[in-house]
Design a protein around this nucleic acid. Structure first.
Lengths: 224, 224
DNA sequence: CGATGGCAAGAGCACCGCTCTCTCTTTGTG
DNA sequence: CACAAAGAGAGAGCGGTGCTCTTGCCATCG
């Protein structure tokens, strides 16, 4: 069945990939909300209606781009974090650096996944697994280094939520560490969002030093 | 000159306000990128081209909404922070709570100011003062409580950037505190963005307890 | 009173997402 | 192998968008 893919199937896969590729290029220079299926079709020498053979709607194309972006970012962080010879602290810092590097290189794709949701557009379930992969990758150095513990435990509803989150991410860390990790991830996302959206132009640009200082502090908080 | 505004000027101001008001309503239910001048015109019983007498372009209308959003959020935080009888820590915590309350009540406006920048749209200079007002309001409890100092100083380029930022915000705090404040603001923005965009639906929703725990930690870090 | 200038209207341009129908070609099967 | 089924593109079309330009009305001010 899968032995010899028919020429038509090959062509279809190729066209689908080209559409995504051209959409990405267009995204890079005009942003998500002005992504035009018609323009993609034009660039492909196709009539606009033909696009709908490949993506049922503009939202479906955007969803594909979102999933790709998550996967791409997650892969970048995973690679950065996967240095077996370095200590946990170095791996965490490298993971953070990889995230910022990716975000600065692909600000439009960053905006796609961590920016404001497109109005009326609700992310389908396909996106949650890739999204989780990103935060999981960033957390693995800490999980691998587990055993330190911050002393304080977290109880109540928040404790249960943290347990559930750790389980969903397949991370074996105590609650207090999980809380710190979520806080760290939130901080990274926030600072990156602010930087990419130009909120730092006043006096904090370039933000390399700021980023480094913050990440070091975060590593301290994580007991790395 | 300003003694008796002509009826025409009054009518113009009124129409301008109504346009903004209707645009805001439309924003609330459809999001920024689907804000339609034509729809606003229809709701106003105006022909679409007439809108351009009041706002030269869609971007200009959106800019007006952005400035309003900053001002509104800043006012909310300022009120929350202005309790003279409470201690600095309480005031800071209240300010953070006000920010989250506002963001959850007006997620579309939050997205407008802290979400991904609209493609091709570059925020005009008019927006930086209101934007600074927000972070300044959040920082005032700490600045009022100054004198503690975290011990460590920050040198180099980052130190200068922190000085510049403190000056731009008209805040008299030492560099290490400024760094912590920026980190705190970034974290708040990031967590709020994640929450509003549904990144917590897995297991952290509702995020009230998470928010409370994070803010308490932040207050600790600030030495409040 | 008469000239000026703000204001609304309407037509129009170039674009958009999406649907429908029609035709042609590839595919898989009886 | 022939033929029905399914896939792919083309084209027309609908209702929507931001924005421009021209035209005519009417309040305002010299």
């Amino acid at each position: 069945m899968t032995g010899a893919p028919t020429p038509r199937a090959v062509a279809r896969a190729e066209t689908t990939a080209r559409i995504k590729e051209l959409a990405l290029a267009q995204l890079a220079e005009s942003g998500a909300s002005s992504l035009s299926l018609r323009a993609v079709a034009r660039a492909l020498d196709l009539v606009s209606s033909a696009i709908y053979r490949y993506y049922a709607s503009r939202d479906e194309l955007i969803t594909a781009l979102i999933v790709d972006a998550y996967d791409d970012l997650a892969a970048a962080v995973e690679v950065a974090v996967e240095h077996p010879r370095r200590g946990a602290r170095h791996r965490f810092v490298d993971g953070c650096a990889a995230m910022r590097t990716w975000a600065r290189a692909e600000p439009h794709r960053w905006a796609l996944i961590y920016g404001s949701a497109i109005p009326g557009y609700t992310a389908p379930a396909d996106t949650v697994a890739p999204a989780a992969r990103v935060v999981r990758a960033l957390c693995t150095p800490v999980a691998d280094d587990r055993g330190i513990g911050t002393g304080r435990d977290v109880g109540g509803r928040l404790g249960a939520q943290l347990d559930a989150t750790g389980a969903a991410l397949d991370l074996d860390v105590d609650r207090a560490t999980m809380l710190t990790l979520i806080g760290a991830f939130g901080r990274l996302v926030g600072l990156l969002t602010l930087e990419l959206n130009g909120h730092f132009v006043g006096g904090l640009e370039p933000a390399d030093d700021l980023w480094a200082a913050i990440v070091e502090r975060e590593a301290d908080d994580l007991g790395l």
